[in-house]
Design a protein around this nucleic acid. Sequence first.
DNA 1: AATCAGACCATTTTT
DNA 2: TGGTCTGATT
Length: 708
Amino acid sequence: MPQDLLTGLNPEQLRAVTWGRGSALVLAGAGSGKTRVLTTRIAWLIQTGQVSPMGVLAVTFTNKAAREMFTRLSAMLPINTRGMWIGTFHGLCNRLLRAHHRDAGLPQLFQILDAQDQLSAVKRVLKALNVDTEKYEPRKLQAFINANKEAGLRANQIEAYDPYTRRLIEYYAAYDAQCNREGVVDFAELLLRSFELLSRNAMLREHYQERFRHILVDEFQDTSRLQYDWLKLLRAPSNAIFAVGDDDQSIYAFRGANVANMALFQKDMGISEVIKLTQNYRSYGTILDAANAVISHNANRLGKDLWTDAGRGEPIRHYEAATDLDEARFVVEEIQELKREGMAYADIAVLYRSNAQSRVIEHALFSAGIPYRVYGGLRFFERAEIRHALAYLRLTANPEDDNAFLRVVNFPARGVGARTVEAIDAAARAGGVSLWAAACAQGAGKKGLAAFIQLIGQLRQETRDMNLAEQVEHVVARCGLIEYYRGERDGEDRIENLNELTNAASAFAAEAESQDLADFLAHAALEAGEHEAQAGQDAVQLMTVHAAKGLEFMAVFITGLEEALFPHENSLTELDGLEEERRLMYVAITRARKRLYLTHAAQRMLHGQPRYGLPSRFLQELPAELVQSVGGWRGSSDLAPAGAAGPGAPGRAAALPYPVGARVQHPRYGEGVVAGYQGQGAEAEVRVSFPRIGDKWFILEYARLTPC
DNA sequence: AATCAGACCATTTTT
DNA sequence: TGGTCTGATT
């Protein structure tokens, strides 16, 4: 009964869950029970008979969030949630396009290109057109295509005012033509194609509009222009969209996310009043105050402050490291202390702005014998051996798949060299046929190629009557990859992964109740799998701040809080870049439940060069009373940064007007940090590092520096 | 076909 | 600094 569902909700949550007046925008702060609200609302709508399970469309950004929703919903309602339309934008579009492939102009078994596949497809297009890839870089073209598709634009809809862009448009068109020819779609195409399908086909559109009485959107601040338009297309005027998001956690603008959709949504739907979830169930007061203080420096906000009734908690700890090594040492020592106090390693996260920062910390953790896990490596379905195996599988399903063909025609090596492939490619282009067809036409003579053609044909035959897991197992066993990796030095792991692929297939078959190879391949593309996980192991979590979004930890270290690093220097030249960096800081702070450490290093090795950074402005934006300094190199004389003791440095530190790392003011360049000294006596020079300007050398005697 | 040296580059990346 | 990519070498 409804009371059961609704007990334990706070007034804000209750209001959101039982919202009854059309579309709603819910501003859900970090840790405010957003997922709970979303799933409870779905359950409530169903339980009160306002909608049938089939009348709900719930959209998320990640597979993880979608799974979470399924799980919670199953726990709340005695219904079979399997057939419900809950999923990622891409997953749901895939579903839509499979169901209406004919109307969408796609083959029934269309393949999905992931980012890597797409890049190789782009390269092939450029090669076929004889384009100078120095001038038109494949990656740039890929980004151009995706950005435009995500804005809802086909090649012929883009306006160009310069010849360079006109060329890009031309290549975009050629790329789309190639994809159509090969029956493949990239990620952005899934969305654009289904958007076009629905906008062109009124019958279909009305059918789904009629069906989805309630549309619910998670992480609404991350929707792109096209995703928002897609949602609007699916909504009949009489139906409601329930959008949940947090503008303060919008950190993916660089990937096409458009926070402005939140304001636009209010306007489009005539929403006069935003529902705000501001009670936080994750962190102590001090941490929330810090988060509120930092984010209050942003100008363009819908506006909300988080609060808790959990009490103040501990102060935030700030450590000023001399160097990145010192920072890592501090992190390790504190982790050891936390462990001694009884905290599990897995409850501790070390966050950083960019991946390059992980190495020093990893090294320190490794040396100390502390188990750790780094997010952000290759995921299961992205590994080379898995992609090879999938390519064989794709060829058994559809030999015309040129991407797959090229990937494995000579892997493992079977004597099909570049010349042969070149010839096949030329023949295919001349005849307007697939590489497979061209290979079959001329393959008889060439030994290796004949073997390949025979192998694929054989695999095709043999797997015809097998179930999914058997197919995968058979292809993996027979395609020659196992033998190849057996001969490799570190091939055992790869063989293990290949065997794991069979398990992945049976797990998929069970979960999705599908024995369809195409479904499995789509799954592999859409859900690349867990990040390098050793699940169950008690290990410290290392990740970028981006990767930490949505997660929480008892203790969090935010490292590298230096100007030019966090906020990142590149962001300062981007439109609203600094605000996005600040939101990133906000996300980072709100990951911590109990204890939060902030660290920065006066000197850090970057690209093989020492860099001297000022403390991040975000540190200054924190109210001093929330932060407790836990020491650092300034406080103890034995921790001078490496730069001070190098060859050429003056013999006696006392003779120096400023210690290395001191903040100084220059009349021309502004505020900087003393980075080092060189030379003696009258020739002594001082190096000062200025943010955004770089390092400058001054003759010590004449340098117009003042301490600050 | 595989290995190696040198060039080049270096924010973040749910799908 | 170190990872990746390319082109030359064997």
